[in-house]
């Protein structure tokens, strides 16, 4: 009898947990740094009254591509980026090496690279102004002056101009 009672309590408890997840558990799904915390921010702009229309994403896309090697948007280049600070942590100045190839895998030397980026969910840019400081030869470039100042989803956007082709590529990072 006691066992049956416990079983019923247990069953109702399970049902309760399904119907009403405790707030703390729901709040902290942390796969994306502070992604979950931001769901609250992205209500329609009208709900904020004073704030202007807001088209920022309210959460990290589910299958965000975080690859460090990819083709540029129009597939003019194959680009790899490697951080010299690994893992990438916030509030630390560091540099990256960018390896630029054409689609056949031949190094692209002497390209011009322009670096920008920011946090799509927050609508702000990078916290520093990184730039290429050294052509390392063989299609490799040293990018100095990167420092991220928050956890979350960051984009690193690179405009590439090889003289023959112009294209851009965006890398995604999720920082903890």
């Amino acid at each position: 009898m006691a066992q049956l009672g416990l079983f019923i309590i247990g069953a109702f408890a399970a049902l309760f947990l399904v119907l009403a997840p405790p707030p703390a558990a729901a709040q902290m799904k942390m796969e994306g740094g502070h992604g979950a915390a931001h769901n609250q921010r992205g209500k329609p702009a009208s709900a904020h009254g004073a704030h202007q229309a807001d088209t920022r994403p309210t959460k990290i896309p589910e299958h965000l591509d975080v690859a460090r090697t990819k083709f540029s948007e129009q597939a003019k280049f194959s680009v790899n980026v490697t951080s010299r600070l690994d893992p990438v942590t916030i509030n630390k100045m560091h540099s990256w090496v960018l390896n630029l190839k054409n689609p056949d895998g031949k190094p692209v030397r002497d390209a011009k690279l322009d670096i920008s980026g920011g946090m799509p969910m927050h609508g702000h840019g990078l916290s520093t102004a990184p730039r290429v400081t050294k052509n390392l030869g063989d299609g490799k470039y040293l990018i100095e002056g990167v420092r991220f100042n928050m956890a979350g989803w960051w984009e690193l956007k690179i405009v590439i101009d090889s003289g023959h082709h112009k294209d851009n590529v965006t890398f995604n990072l999720i920082l903890k």
Partner: peptide, 16 residues
Amino acid sequence: LRLFIGKGNCIECHNG
């Protein structure tokens, strides 16, 4: 503390 690191977003800037 939960609000600070959660829906208060405080930890975005007040981190470390």
